[in-house]
Simulated assay, not measured.
Amino acid sequence: MPILAAKFDPTATDVRLDSDLLHIVMADGRELSVPLEWFPRLRDASPEQRAHWRFIGRGKGIHWPDVDEDISVASLLRLS
């Protein structure tokens, strides 16, 4: 009987934000959504500030320069 050999890769490949949630897409296909309430700087930021982000550490984290916020993907996985 075959078994699934999943390779987990906690590297982010895309980021989306809506009014209530931060959505992270990872290289292995998983998607993680967490409440913006966990991140007051992002929660209180304008849509333009939220949209201005970049990956750090080759997708190991996300940085929002306009609000000085850094979030590591590993920490989100531990929290969720």
Rank of each mutant, 00 (worst) to 15 (best):
R41K: 15
E31I: 02
F8L: 12
G57D: 08
E37C: 00
A51E: 07
R43D: 11
A27S: 11
I56M: 14
F39W: 10
S80P: 00
S72T: 15
A74C: 01
G59C: 10
P47D: 08
P10R: 00
I71H: 00
A51I: 01
L32V: 14
W64D: 07
L17H: 07
S33N: 04
L42H: 02
V73H: 08
S75G: 04
D14G: 11
H63Q: 04
L22E: 03
A12K: 01
A6N: 03
F39T: 01
K60R: 15
R54N: 11
V67Y: 04
S33T: 10
D14W: 01
P47W: 08
R78V: 07
S19A: 14
I3F: 08
D66C: 07
E48S: 12
S33E: 13
V34F: 02
D44N: 15
D66T: 08
H52V: 03
W38V: 00
L77E: 09
A12P: 05
D18E: 09
D14S: 07
I62W: 07
V73Q: 05
I71C: 02
I24Q: 05
L32K: 03
P47L: 10
V73Y: 06
L32W: 03
L17D: 05
F55E: 13
R16L: 13
K60Y: 09
V34L: 09
S33W: 01
A51K: 04
H23V: 12
I71V: 15
R43K: 13
R58K: 15
H23A: 08
V34E: 02
R50F: 04
E31Q: 11
A6R: 12
K7H: 05
L76F: 04
R54Q: 13
V73E: 06
D68Y: 05
S33D: 13
A27P: 02
F55H: 13
G59K: 12
V15P: 11
A12V: 03
F55V: 13
L17V: 14
S46K: 06
I56T: 13
A6Q: 06
R41L: 14
R78H: 11
E37G: 00
D14R: 11
S72N: 10
G57V: 06
V73C: 11
D14N: 15
W53C: 11
R50A: 03
S75T: 13
D70E: 14
L17Q: 09
E48F: 08
G61Q: 09
D66N: 08
R30D: 12
G29R: 12
A6K: 05
S19V: 12
A74W: 09
P35I: 05
G57A: 12
F39V: 02
D9W: 01
L22I: 10
K60V: 02
L42R: 06
A45H: 07
G29I: 12
P10H: 07
A5S: 07
W38N: 12
D9N: 07
A5N: 04
L77A: 03
E31H: 02
F39Y: 15
P2D: 05
L77M: 14
P47K: 09
F39M: 01
L79R: 13
W38R: 14
H52E: 09
E48M: 06
W64H: 08
D28V: 06
K7I: 03
L22P: 06
A74P: 03
P40R: 05
P40H: 08
P2M: 01
P10Y: 10
